[in-house]
Each structure stands twice: as structure tokens, then as C-alpha cells.
Design a protein around this nucleic acid. Structure first.
Lengths: 224, 224
DNA sequence: TTTCCGTTTGAATAGTTGTTCACTTCTTGT
DNA sequence: ACAAGAAGTGAACAACTATTCAAACGGAAA
């Protein structure tokens, strides 16, 4: 045996793998899923097309991992924001706001992850992504219901609907175009958050300060 | 001049054109947009593949017309339902319910029209479809606002968000599967309608009977 | 240094469908 | 019946990319 998986080699392999994933993510953020093609991604990652296949069995697998990756980050951010909130209602508001801000600050990527046509089947990972995030929302809604802040309801369906509302209003084809302006962006986030909170039964969210509270830290996020 | 576009010929041509469109629609309703391929559609329409191209310059054009067609029907149904309602609030409720019932009773078709990945660019017609329906919703929301039943708001954004909520909750990948059961279907329609109305600021829609009122005629639609 | 064998390469391959076009069939008016 | 030309046919073509693979490369042990 004259060739062994030395520590250095293992590290290089892992680095290459994540370089390819990063390249895919960059490509998606740049030009949407349509830009995530094997050859261009390979170029971005400084490898040959064939090499990609030593790390991912197929394009479908590559994109699925990309979706899972982005989704994992997103979920973590939502949890962080919600956990930092003082109570169930503001946790829900924070979760909603976080989603809104994130999808807005990476619209092309978000659109690619969520709904953009891809030539391979990524249904499963998209489903998982939605299930995770919708599930997190459902948990937060449920907490608010149990705290007596919201009426009893089908939390799963409500969470799904909220997600749909956020996506369509902010990254869908009808989404306003000039959300690069930070002020308009904040307004859009506020409006949509208010809408979402009212949908699940929050009474007068604006007066209770939930929306504004939640929006302020979000504004910082946009800058980051 | 020995061949003229006689009335009979014109009629036959028109019939063939709509036969192709119908075939495309059937294919989409059956197997989603993925099933709308030139050759299979041609078979369904009892013509050769080449013939399709005598009526539609490209697959993109064919699918765009399909989308516009379905969208037109949908818009008409929404208007009919809303116009039949006694006041602005119930008109809005009726519009929302109509959308919910329609997408539920033709889930595959709706998914295809709205969001399913297609290999040709149909962005424009999808955009138009959404703009039309969202616009109609916006009009109804606006009427309710002007009647003093709803708080002032960005009606366009609200309409878009509502549309997203309905779609995601009812035909998106997270939508509950067993909505074939008429009772569950009605429940889902009710839940989502309630959510949507609350989102735009309707207070206690259930108590005011808006949801139930609107749902009852919708139930008839499902049977049709 | 040399040998070994996993890794990388990138040009060639393959499979999928939309689209074309030379030819056939059909309709109309004389 | 026949000419003239439009409509219809469907096999062949084209274009696009994911995927493969034989050859080249390069670290690791002897």
C-alpha cells in the first residue's frame, strides 16, 4: 500500500467539495438556478467538469445539497432571531421578519432555492426546505397560541400560508422591483410582517409594537 | 386563384387550433406541465407534430396561450362570484373563496400554470396571469377599504401576499394531500379564507358570516 | 528516485426534445 | 376532372448539457 488517505489529503478533499458547493451557491446568487450548470460551476471552483462528479453523483444531488445548505443557514437565522425575542408573539414576529429580510437581501438565490425552474428534479429537497422552515413557523405560532395571544388554529396550514405570502410578495414575479432602496425595503418588510401577523390573529400588531420591534434589528441585518 | 379560405375551412382551422390548446390543457391537467410536450400534445389533438407549428410558432407560445386561457377563465369566475356578493367585504371573501376552490379542484393544472418548472420561458404570461388576478383582488380589497370595512393599506402588496398564501397553502408542495375528501376540502378553504381575510384586517370574519357565506356557493362549484 | 494508485482532466459521448422541411394530401374554383 | 396552392405529415435534424472515461497527473511510501 503506497497511497494512503493522509490527513492533508482528507482536508484538501473536503475543501474542494465545499469549494464546489460555494461555487454553485455563488452562481445561483448571481444568475439564478439557470446559471448552476456543471461546466460554469467547475470553472468557478477551479476544477474540471469531471471533477465535480467525484464529489457529487449528479447535478440533482449537487443542487439538492445547495438547497439544503442554504435552507439550514436560513433556519438557523430564524431560530436565533426568534429565540432572542422576549415572548412568543415577538418571537413569531421576529421569525417572520427574519424570513422577509433574508429573502429580500438575496432575492435571486431565494427564488432559485424556492421556485425557479431547474432541469433536474429537486422536488424532494425543496419540499424538505419548506417543511423545515414552515415547521419552525408553526412551532412559533403554536407557542403564541398556547400563550393565549392567538386564537386556536391549524398552525401547520397557517405557517404554510404565511410562507407563501412572504415569498410571493417579496420574491415572486409580482414583487416590487425597487426594493434596493433600504427605506422601501424596510417598508415592504413591515407591511408584509403586519399582514402575516394579522393573518394568524394578532390584534393590532402595529400598536403593540411587535412589527416595529422586530423590524429594527432586521434593519441591521440588511446592512450586514 | 383556386383555393380560398372558405367559411368551412376557417371554421376547421379554428377548431383545430382550439383542439391543440385543449389537448395541451388536458395534458397539463393530467401530468402537469412536464406532460405538455409537442409530440404527446399532437397525438392527443390527432395531428402530427409538425401541424402544431402551423398554429403556434413555438412551444413557448403554445404554453403561454394555455396559461392566458386558463387565467382568463379563472378571472371571469372570480369576477362573477365577487359581483354576486351583497357588499365589498363579502365580495372580497367570495373572490378569495373562488380562487381557493378553483385551485383545489384542479391542483395539477393550477400548479402547472402557476409555478411548475417548464423548459421554455413563460415568465411573461405567468406574470400577466398573476397581475390580472392579483389586480382583481386588489380592486376588491380597495373597495372594502373605501367602504370603511378595512384599514388603509398597500392593496397591491396585500393582494399579492394573499395570492401567495392561497397558492402555497393549497397547491404548493406542502399542501395537505387528502383534500379529495369534500369535507376536508371545505375545511381547508374555510381556514385559508379566514386567514386571508384576517390578513387584510377583517375583524372576526367568522362571526360576521363572511367565510361561511362565501363558502356555501363554492361548495356547489366543487361538485360541478 | 521510483513505484503505486487515487485524483484530475476535458474532449467525446449520449439522450432528450423542440423544430424544420421536402413531400403528400386535401380543398376549391374552373 | 384538373390545376393550383394551402394544410398536414413525420422522419430527420439541431442544440443544448449532463455525464463518462481513457489518459495524465501528483502525493505517499519504499
Amino acid at each position: 500500500m503506497v497511497y494512503r488517505r493522509t490527513h492533508q489529503v482528507v482536508k484538501r478533499l473536503a475543501a474542494r467539495r465545499s469549494a464546489i458547493l460555494s461555487a454553485a451557491r455563488d452562481a445561483a446568487a448571481d444568475g439564478g438556478m439557470a446559471a448552476v450548470q456543471i461546466a460554469p460551476v467547475a470553472v468557478r471552483a477551479n476544477v474540471a467538469a469531471g471533477t465535480v462528479y467525484r464529489y457529487f453523483p449528479s447535478k440533482a444531488e449537487l443542487i439538492s445539497e445547495l438547497i439544503a445548505d442554504v435552507s439550514r443557514d436560513e433556519l438557523a437565522a430564524i431560530r436565533r432571531a426568534a429565540d432572542a425575542a422576549p415572548g412568543p408573539s415577538s418571537a413569531l414576529a421576529a421569525a417572520v421578519t427574519t424570513i422577509a429580510v433574508h429573502v429580500l437581501s438575496q432575492r435571486k438565490l431565494a427564488w432559485g432555492i424556492l421556485a425557479e425552474p431547474v432541469d433536474v428534479d429537486v422536488t424532494a429537497s425543496r419540499l424538505a426546505s419548506r417543511r423545515d422552515i414552515s415547521g419552525e413557523l408553526a412551532t412559533r405560532i403554536d407557542a403564541a397560541v398556547r400563550a393565549g395571544h392567538l386564537p386556536a388554529q391549524d398552525t401547520g396550514l397557517a405557517a404554510t400560508a404565511l410562507l407563501g405570502a412572504l415569498h410571493e410578495a417579496l420574491v415572486g414575479p409580482l414583487a416590487p422591483v425597487n426594493l434596493d432602496d433600504p427605506i422601501k425595503l424596510r417598508d415592504a418588510v413591515q407591511t408584509v410582517t403586519l399582514l402575516a401577523l394579522r393573518a394568524v390573529g394578532v390584534m393590532d400588531a402595529r400598536a403593540r409594537g411587535l412589527v416595529v420591534q422586530a423590524t429594527t434589528p432586521a434593519k441591521a441585518l440588511v446592512g450586514a
